[in-house]
């Protein structure tokens, strides 16, 4: 797209970020400088490598501003794309939260109903408890993502999602004793 200023904005933002990294982030958040003298021996400090990385960023930004600001293949980022991307990410975050807490919540509910004092942490390698989070969170994830693209929620999608996630759980869990399905490594 001619006369677009996308590259100019991206270039300027990249240069600003590189300056921020070189002059603020690295000095404030790194223990040693570019070059250090330890017991009369000169060594490379921890700040040098990230400074070079930021220099690559600065060079890329400068090249965008100097050589490619009038490029005719500049992408036009539509707000719709950004919003859709955010919706995708939000759906995944919700699903992972479901995945993380569904198992412990079910055990809590079970305790409430039966009066037992079971702990999810101790049951995380025991069927059916270990599958609850993955099956529920995974089904929510696939259903939400497919529904976002289709623009509608269908029972068929839910069924397909549940079957896919069940197959996935079987692939990763059944043959291997040492693999833990999410979220069972954390709880």
């Amino acid at each position: 797209m001619r006369h677009s200023n996308g590259n100019l904005i991206l270039g300027a933002a990249t240069i600003a970020f590189a300056i921020l990294v070189i002059f603020i982030w690295i000095p404030l958040d790194t223990q040693t400088g570019l070059i250090e003298k330890v017991r009369r021996q000169v060594t490379i400090g921890d700040a040098l490598a990230p400074t070079i990385a930021a220099s690559f960023l600065a060079i890329g930004g400068l090249m965008l501003v100097l050589f490619e600001r009038n490029a005719d293949d500049q992408p036009k980022v539509s707000p719709q794309d950004v919003l859709f991307g955010l919706a995708l990410i939000a759906s995944i975050i919700i699903s992972i939260l479901v995945m993380r807490y569904a198992g412990p919540a079910t055990v809590g509910l079970w305790n409430l109903l039966s009066g037992s004092e079971a702990e999810y942490r101790l049951l995380r390698d025991t069927a059916p408890w270990k599958y609850i989070g993955f099956l529920l969170g995974g089904t929510v994830m696939i259903t939400m993502l497919v529904s976002l693209v289709e623009g509608r929620l269908r029972v068929k999608t839910l069924m397909i999602a549940f079957i896919s996630v069940s197959v996935m759980a079987a692939i990763y869990d059944l043959p291997f004793d040492d693999l833990l399905l999410p979220p069972n490594g954390d709880v």
Partner: peptide, 30 residues
């Protein structure tokens, strides 16, 4: 298609790998 964006992408990759690594006791840029 864009050398500038390629160099930018390289810089981002390098920056990402240097976060939390290094030889000092304090993990840099963490």
């Amino acid at each position: 298609g864009s050398p500038a964006k390629g160099v930018l992408s390289t810089g981002l990759g390098l920056l990402a790998v240097y976060i939390g690594t290094g030889e000092d006791f304090y993990p840099r840029m963490s």
